[in-house]
Write a protein that binds this DNA or RNA. Sequence first.
DNA 1: TGAATTGTTATCGT
DNA 2: AACGATAACAATTC
Length: 278
Amino acid sequence: MPELPEVETIVRRLRSSVMGRRIVAFHSRCAKQARPNVAAVRRAVVGQTIAQLGRRGKYIVFYLEHSGFLLVHLGMSGRLGVLSNDDQSPRHVRASWELDDGNRLLLSDARKFGRIEHVADLAAATAGLGIEPLSSAFTAAWLAAELRKRSRQLKPLLLDQSLIAGLGNIYVDESLFRAGVHPLTRCDRLDRRQTAALHRAIREVLREAIRYEGTSFDWAYRGGRMQARLKVYGRAGEPCRRCRTPIAYLRVSQRGTHICPRCQPAPRSDRTEPAEQP
DNA sequence: TGAATTGTTATCGT
DNA sequence: AACGATAACAATTC
């Protein structure tokens, strides 16, 4: 389940081996994963040089020298890596890019939730994505203003890619814990102190996760060391690292959610959830 | 066996 | 009408 820190790590690892390389061939046997379709992607990328590799939210962005951009979204099980000629091919390869140095870039993706898309206009294609949480535009004042505009529960709001791009289930839970805020809190009910704490927590958690090259949880993403530093995610029943209270597991908008019931007290019940009417 | 996972889309209610 | 909540869906592993 690659989120912003995992995608950033992949981009950094990949950069040196794909930048300046020309794409010699493109193959995909998974028609539904390529947009607008496999043939269009092949036409657009074959013969092109990769000028730069970047990230926007959870998207990996290939800056093609003469024909727009290739966006790769890893979904929840996608892995992108360069294979040397003599390496063994991973399982579930859905797409491959043959490079002019003889190496191959592979997308392996067991669950096929990943997407490959060629676009002419990067700004237009990513217009639906919200702010980059590590950019200087993401300030406590900005967050406070956005939280005031709405009334949703905090967790689904933070997962909404159209407000903040790149947060997923792991780092939302971690951010809320570090801010000491309950995921069911209505977003317009945070006071100034809590908003500042949340803003700070999001940036600190993402920065730390990038420093430790992301969270390796299962076969879907390997190589990270952040899992050892997580405070709540995946720690249901284990003692809180701050107060020893067992970490609780609940479900918030269909997502598994981890909290410390003591460090993240439940919001006052008035108007937090829709009142139960008989 | 079912729970878990992301993002998109549809639908319903307020 | 706009917003928010909810469910379904894609597919596979453990």
